[in-house]
Write a protein that binds this DNA or RNA. Structure first.
Ligand code: SF4
Ligand code: SF4
Lengths: 147, 147
DNA sequence: CAGATTTAAGACTCTTTTGTCTTAATATAA
DNA sequence: TTATATTAAGACAAAAGAGTCTTAAATCTG
């Protein structure tokens, strides 16, 4: 799977937060309940996003987390970078180091086309788009329970 | 990184074996040396490929591993499936279950385009193509040591 | 047969990822 | 002020991935 689970959870939570009507703070407990993610685990992940200034947080009653800036200014890549580290597309298929057009493995040319598309998708896709799409078209952010 | 390290090693070793001039058995020791992969670890990985009938092996002097069928009949997908399990492209970005066009997450449409391309690349790319390209164009199968 | 070579099998260790839990800090509200 | 709600921080545990090592089995060579 492309991204770590940690990263998946972070993205899903961020979309959820971005989709809130009122821009109040959303308690992590509510997010974890809605998305069916362990509360404590999600807390750690969102702390990371808070440290990276993608979310802001507030403690105490009526506290929670909220986007640190407008949803259209937060890309998927921002979140992935914050959680999984710099370039999740740097290494790839064969996991070789120092990949470049100059010293390629035999898959490089074909793979690079796909990789570029992925990178572009992650850069262009913002939380605003994802949140709007999610609520408008009733997309899901959780696993299905029914077979 | 898309694939597990185990899978990377398996692919690289398979390309190396496919690229051998004589279709004799290639000792794993030689592969591990050339590709700079731990001998014991590689042995375990190639055992897997042997069990899955992608390689055949022979013990004793002049033993080693060889392709179990013609190189143009072994696709990358065959190798990936044998090592990392069925469909490495089944789940994806958000890691949700039961993904389909009917019950999508908000990234589904965009992502599916890319995923299809990946799947097709893995299905179309055979060891024959990779081995030929590697030897003809001097592509590399190993990490670079020089900075 | 004896010795060398090479894969097979599986136990074992180390590291990373994933997940849980406890305690502390901060804020609100009664 | 006291109780309650909530994030912060970090220790800890469990599971999976990556890698090592030892012993056994098969095969060839002399
Ligand atoms: S496809 Fe390109 S970037 Fe990926 S491992 Fe090969 S050389 Fe490196
Ligand atoms: S993009 Fe499609 S296949 Fe991937 S997690 Fe979303 S719904 Fe599932």
């Amino acid at each position: 799977m492309m991204l770590s689970k940690t990263c998946d959870y972070g993205i899903r939570a961020a979309i959820f937060v971005a989709g809130r009507k009122d821009q109040q703070f959303t308690p992590i407990g509510e997010i974890s309940e809605q998305l069916n993610i362990s509360f404590h685990f999600l807390t750690k992940i969102l702390q990371r996003l808070t440290q990276e200034s993608i979310l802001k947080s507030y403690r105490g009653s009526n506290g929670g987390v909220a986007l640190a800036r407008a949803a259209h200014l937060i890309s998927l890549k921002d979140i992935v970078s914050a959680i999984d580290g710099d370039n999740p597309f740097g290494a790839c298929l064969l996991g070789l180091n120092q990949c470049s057009d100059h010293n390629p493995c035999p898959l490089h040319e074909q793979w690079n086309l796909i990789r570029k598309k992925m990178e572009s998708l992650f850069e262009k896709t913002t939380l605003a788009k994802l949140a709007t799409a999610t609520t408008a078209k009733r997309f899901r952010l959780t696993d299905l329970t029914e077979p």
